[in-house]
Amino acid sequence: MDLIGSLPAFLLAVLLISASPGPAMALIFRRAALRGFRSAVGTVLGLEAGLYIWAIAAGAGLTALVAASETAYLVLRLAGAAFLVYLGIRSWIAVFRGGVEAPVPAGDPGGRSFARAVGEGVVVQLANPKAAIFMFAFYPQFIPENWPLLSTTAVLALVQVTVETALYLALAASVARAGAWFRKAKIRRRIEAITGTVLIALGLRVAVSSQ
């Protein structure tokens, strides 16, 4: 098996993984709907930066330590769960505030919100120990024998990041087109309630799940 020959199977797996519902989808949808495309771009870049860091860690063998250490896995798992629950609670706080907060302008031109979106995406991805273990188990299947593990993993991760970024930006752009409708007070509260519930549920699932 060579790397080129394994790419079709790798791309198919990446597409299926990217399309699976999870924290990434929830965050991107919420950002695009309520704060516009630019802010959602920050979330996507943050998520993919975190993904690439985990991939490099997998290539370097660091994620094997996470998988092998119950303490490291527990700490990461609880940290990730706590952050997801925190994001969900924050959404529900916005629901209870009703129309007190001023509507967010389309496009959200402020740099502070963009930076916050990037940071949020990075933290969500890095605080997910299952992502680390997945990388450790997933990438070696597509790396030819006798190929350098770290550099080949870096190349495959770059392919995955490129594919996921394109898909997530397309999703964000589609949602952002209906931004004016999403930012109506009634619809906004419903989105906050739905995404808040989803994030809290995902956080609790992470907290109680095992390797």
Score class of each variant (00 low, 15 high):
Val41Pro: 05
Val41Arg: 09
Val44Glu: 06
Leu47Tyr: 02
Glu48Met: 09
Glu48Cys: 00
Ala49Glu: 00
Ala49Asn: 00
Gly50Ile: 07
Gly50Ser: 07
Trp54Tyr: 10
Ala55Phe: 02
Ile56Arg: 10
Ala57Met: 09
Gly59Phe: 08
Gly59Ala: 11
Ala60Glu: 08
Thr63Lys: 06
Ala64His: 12
Ala67Pro: 03
Glu70Arg: 15
Ala72Phe: 03
Leu74Ser: 15
Leu76Phe: 15
Arg77Cys: 12
Leu78Trp: 10
Gly80Gln: 05
Ala81Ile: 04
Ala82Pro: 01
Phe83Ile: 04
Leu84His: 02
Gly88Ile: 02
Ile89Val: 15
Ser91Trp: 03
Ser91Met: 10
Trp92Asn: 01
Ile93Pro: 01
Ala94Ile: 07
Val95Ser: 06
Val95Arg: 05
Val95Ile: 05
Val95Lys: 04
Val95Asn: 09
Phe96Gln: 11
Gly99His: 07
Val100Ile: 13
Pro103Ser: 12
Ala106Arg: 15
Pro109Arg: 10
Pro109Ala: 12
Pro109Trp: 12
Gly110Pro: 00
Ser113Glu: 15
Phe114Asp: 09
Ala115Asp: 09
Arg116Cys: 03
Gly119Asn: 05
Glu120Trp: 03
Val123Asp: 09
Val123Arg: 01
Gln125Val: 06
Leu126Val: 13
Ala127Thr: 13
Asn128Cys: 11
Pro129Tyr: 07
Ala131Phe: 07
Ala131Gln: 07
Ile133His: 10
Phe136Lys: 05
Ala137Gly: 06
Ala137Cys: 02
Phe138Gly: 05
Tyr139Gly: 01
Pro140Gln: 14
Pro140Met: 14
Phe142Ile: 06
Phe142Leu: 02
Phe142Trp: 01
Pro148Asn: 09
Pro148Tyr: 11
Leu150Pro: 00
Leu150Arg: 04
Leu150Val: 15
Ser151Ile: 13
Ser151Leu: 14
Leu156Gly: 08
